[in-house]
Simulated scan of single mutants.
Amino acid sequence: MKHVFRRVAAVAAIVLSTGAAQAEMIDFEQPVTAPFAPMLTHEDVFLQGSYAFLAFSNASNAGFGDLVGAMIDGNDLSMCSGVVCPTNNTSTFYGALNDGAVAFSRLDGQSFAVNSFDASFIGGMGSALPPVAGLLRLQGFTSTGATMSQTFQLAGPNTGGELGFGSYQTSGTFASTNFAQVYAFGFACNAGGTCNAFSTDRGQFALDNISVTAVPELETTAMFALGLIAMGAAVRRRRQQSV
């Protein structure tokens, strides 16, 4: 029976050293339940896989019913009648509208890292857009309250006048940090290169295919590993008692 105990102890050691990493792709294909779905208003909460999302406005006078986002079907862009949406995505994606922001975290409370995502600017109808139409900023908060951010440039229209998704990867310390919650919000840029957030109602963006990896906190992992060791010891004792 010693070999059984050794195997359990070995598994526990691996769990302690690596954690049970959980990779997931948030693709926004899960149906959303909200009062005005697929439109999303201030403080609407919706679920996607193992994650909860909060759509909200940063305006001081924001209230119930204020439009801040939408779940957009890339095969039917009729929802984009008042804005210019990206045209190179045929799946469902999240669109942040009217300077709206979105925050997301895991349902089980575990921390997670953001690896990559697809994003595009969403333009205002009839407005000329510069080569860098806007910025997308991710701001992460750790379980200890520390925060850091990373900002990404969103391209303007292509030669055909259409906006499109690009693929982005996080990097450096931001990429290697596990966050309890991540905010995403947009900036609108003008031809002079000045970019503003939360002041123009044009800081709009589309978001899709967020690659995230969750790793249980050390305390949770240690408890799981100790449980495995205790289980192996119990099996060994029962075996010895039956001999």
Rank of each mutant, 00 (worst) to 15 (best):
F187V: 03
T142A: 10
M79N: 08
N190F: 03
R238C: 08
M125Y: 12
S120R: 00
S127C: 08
A191C: 09
A191F: 08
D27Y: 06
V132N: 12
N88A: 10
A234N: 12
N178D: 13
G134Y: 06
T170W: 01
A96N: 07
T151C: 11
Q30S: 14
V15R: 09
K2I: 15
Q153P: 06
L54M: 12
A21F: 11
T92Y: 02
Y168C: 03
G124F: 05
Y94A: 08
F224T: 10
M148V: 05
L135T: 11
D27Q: 11
A70G: 02
N115I: 13
F28S: 02
V4M: 08
M125R: 15
E43N: 11
V11D: 14
G166E: 03
T142Q: 03
P131E: 15
V15L: 09
P130N: 12
N89Q: 10
A225Y: 00
A37K: 11
Q181I: 09
M148Y: 08
V15I: 14
V212P: 01
I26Q: 07
V45Y: 06
Q241C: 11
V102T: 08
D208W: 10
A9W: 02
T221A: 02
A175K: 14
Q22E: 15
V83C: 01
A20S: 13
F5R: 14
S167E: 07
T151M: 05
D99C: 03
S127I: 10
A62W: 04
A20E: 15
G166S: 10
L97P: 03
G126N: 09
N115F: 11
S17W: 07
Q139Y: 06
G186K: 02
V212C: 04
R7L: 09
A10S: 07
V212H: 06
F141P: 01
P130M: 12
T173P: 01
S81Y: 15
G166C: 06
F36A: 10
T194H: 13
V243H: 12
L207E: 07
S81E: 13
P216G: 06
S111D: 12
R137W: 02
L67G: 01
L135A: 08
A52T: 05
S60M: 12
S171D: 14
V215W: 04
V84T: 03
F185K: 02
